[in-house]
Every structure is written in structure tokens, then in C-alpha cells.
Computed example of a mutant assay.
Amino acid sequence: MNPYQYAVLRCVPRVEREEFLNVGVVVYCQRADFLDVAWDVSRERLASFAPSLDVDTVCAGLEFVAGVCRGDAALGGVAADDLGTRFGFLKAPRSTVLQPGPVHGGLTADPAATLADLLARLVRLPHGMQE
């Protein structure tokens, strides 16, 4: 089993209201040399939560996170750093619409499966719930 850390990515349309919806999860597992993000944005859910929100901007922010995880050379800077530094960048608090939540940890034999499980449990609507 390998220790891992994760942060839930939150869409926070109005920071002063401290309301958010979970939209993604970043998982970092040093021993497995793993850093990845999974996300699921429901346009309908975000539109009902924050009608004036530009959902495309939220999705672009999530694509940026994915690029940092992949080490996309086109992003330069932080995307060229080691995985631990990239995770440190991604988990740092920001005052933007897309914010990381607190970092949590656990043990995993399969970081990709753990990422999929966290996305299902923490981001997607529970089975049977309607949008």
C-alpha cells in the first residue's frame, strides 16, 4: 500500500458567500509517481447554483489543472517541476472561482482507481439523485 494525498477542487462563484460545489479531485502518490485530476462539471447544476457563472471558465481552469498534472510543456513554469512541487502548487489556496479544499490522505494500492472512487464519492451526485 502506498500513501497518497488528495484535494477536492471546488467551484466557488462568490467567495464572500463561502458556498461551493465540488467539481474535481487531484490525487498525488509519490511512491507510485502519480499525479492526476478527474473532474465532472454539470452545467445544469452550476447554472442553477450560480446563474451568472461562466461555466466555460471553470472548465478551462480544470483543463489547466489537468495540464499541470500531465506536465504539459506548453504551460511552462510549474508544469515542468517534479510531481510533488506540482501538487503543492495545485493544493495552494487561491481566491478564484476554482479553489482546492483541504488536503486529505490515505493508503492505496492503485492511485488511478482511488481517484475514480473519490470522484464518484465526492463530486458526482449520488445514484438516484436528480439534477
Rank of each mutant, 00 (worst) to 15 (best):
residue 1 M to N: 07
residue 2 N to M: 15
residue 2 N to W: 15
residue 3 P to E: 07
residue 3 P to I: 08
residue 4 Y to L: 13
residue 5 Q to C: 06
residue 5 Q to F: 08
residue 6 Y to D: 03
residue 6 Y to Q: 03
residue 7 A to N: 04
residue 8 V to C: 01
residue 9 L to G: 02
residue 12 V to C: 07
residue 19 E to D: 10
residue 19 E to A: 04
residue 20 F to T: 02
residue 22 N to G: 03
residue 29 C to F: 03
residue 33 D to Y: 00
residue 34 F to H: 06
residue 39 W to A: 14
residue 39 W to R: 04
residue 40 D to Q: 07
residue 41 V to A: 09
residue 41 V to T: 07
residue 46 L to A: 05
residue 53 L to E: 09
residue 56 D to T: 05
residue 60 A to S: 13
residue 63 E to S: 11
residue 64 F to P: 04
residue 65 V to L: 01
residue 70 R to G: 03
residue 77 G to W: 03
residue 80 A to T: 09
residue 84 G to Y: 06
residue 85 T to C: 05
residue 85 T to E: 13
residue 88 G to M: 08
residue 88 G to R: 07
residue 89 F to Q: 09
residue 89 F to R: 06
residue 91 K to F: 09
residue 92 A to C: 11
residue 94 R to N: 02
residue 94 R to F: 00
residue 95 S to D: 13
residue 99 Q to G: 02
residue 100 P to C: 06
residue 101 G to Y: 00
residue 101 G to L: 01
residue 103 V to E: 04
residue 104 H to N: 10
residue 105 G to E: 12
residue 106 G to D: 02
residue 106 G to Q: 06
residue 109 A to N: 11
residue 112 A to C: 09
residue 119 L to A: 04
residue 124 R to L: 07
residue 126 P to V: 06
residue 126 P to Y: 09
residue 127 H to C: 09
